[in-house]
Amino acid sequence: MRPTGAVPILTLGDVVLVSIQVELHDELVLRLQQDLAQQVADTGARGVVIDVSAIDIVDSFLAKVLHDISATAAMLASTAIVVGIRPAVAITLVELGLPLRGVRTAPSVNAAFAMLGVRAASERPHVPPGSPVSPDGRLPSGDRGREDDPRAHDHLPREPRVREMW
């Protein structure tokens, strides 16, 4: 764990996990973005899980940063997943014209870990849409590696076009 202002970054196996628990000002957001990229590069993590369930507003600035983190992670051969966007925040982002196209999302940290092919330690597996699943409904055993099952990308953005931005 290394401190980045008030936002601690954890490394669990080959996943980098960050849970944002404080009201972020812009400088803190930018530092987090830099530190995450550094951490992914240093550890070769296969996934970055960003838990925003404590965040009660996401404006276009933070949305852009989440988007950039995803793009940066992809360039570093990693997958970023944003977890726990609240309903009111989701509605506002959509109204704002920012459906975070290209950013992967999951309802919980466990679900995000399952999407990355990592079994979270504590709970029974939550199988999110599109995660690699064998026909009997169990998570496949063994390491999925980075070459994910193509089905895992199935639920990537499917935004319809309502406005031009979308």
Partner: peptide, 12 residues
Amino acid sequence: LVEQTKLVTAAS
């Protein structure tokens, strides 16, 4: 809650 979030986001 939704009205609050929209207004606060616009203010931001």
